[in-house]
Simulated assay, not measured.
Amino acid sequence: MTLPGGENSSGRRSVVLIMRPINDGHVAEPGLAVVEVAAADDETAFAVQELLTTRWAIAPAERVTHEPGEPGVRLRCFLDLWQRPDS
């Protein structure tokens, strides 16, 4: 959460600059979700994404992002809770 003056609730400025806005189409109806994974490394982030694919249909991320000076990486994928991966 960004507070007035550009600081987030932890008192650090602009911690989440790399996060893209969530588009209305991403959550246009119940059952659609945006999932953002924060992990120590690429391998962990992609492992979490792989676990999600075993349960729900997703639009997978092909890469992770990293903000210089911040620990770890982030990955964003989109879920459709109404579609199963085997359908």
Rank of each mutant, 00 (worst) to 15 (best):
A47F: 07
V27M: 07
I22G: 04
A59E: 11
A47W: 08
A38N: 10
R84H: 15
P68C: 05
D86P: 01
P21H: 08
R20P: 07
A57K: 05
G72I: 06
W82K: 14
E62D: 12
R76G: 02
V34W: 00
E70F: 04
R12V: 09
D41P: 04
P4Y: 10
G69P: 04
T53W: 05
L3P: 07
A57T: 06
A57E: 03
T54E: 13
L3V: 08
A38Y: 11
V15S: 08
D80E: 13
S9T: 14
E36W: 04
F78S: 03
L17A: 15
E62F: 07
L81S: 09
Q49F: 10
E62C: 04
P68S: 11
V16F: 03
R12C: 08
G6T: 12
T65Q: 07
E43N: 12
V37W: 02
P21A: 12
A57L: 10
W56S: 01
G6W: 11
R74F: 06
R55I: 09
H66C: 05
M19C: 05
A47C: 07
A59N: 10
M1K: 06
I22L: 13
I18P: 00
A59T: 13
E70C: 05
V48S: 04
L17W: 04
A57W: 03
V35A: 04
P30R: 05
E29K: 11
T53G: 14
M19K: 02
T54Q: 13
R63I: 06
P85G: 10
A33G: 05
A33K: 02
T54H: 13
V27L: 07
A59Q: 10
F46V: 07
V15Q: 09
A33N: 04
E70R: 12
P30W: 02
R20N: 14
C77G: 00
A33H: 06
L79V: 15
R76T: 14
V15W: 02
P4F: 07
P60Q: 08
A40M: 11
T2A: 09
G69E: 09
N23W: 09
A45V: 05
G31A: 09
V73P: 01
E67C: 03
A59L: 11
L81Y: 10
D24T: 08
P60S: 11
V15D: 06
S14G: 14
Q83P: 02
L79N: 01
N23K: 12
E62N: 11
R84C: 09
S87R: 14
R76V: 13
V37F: 03
L51P: 00
A57I: 00
H66G: 06
V35G: 01
M19P: 00
T65P: 00
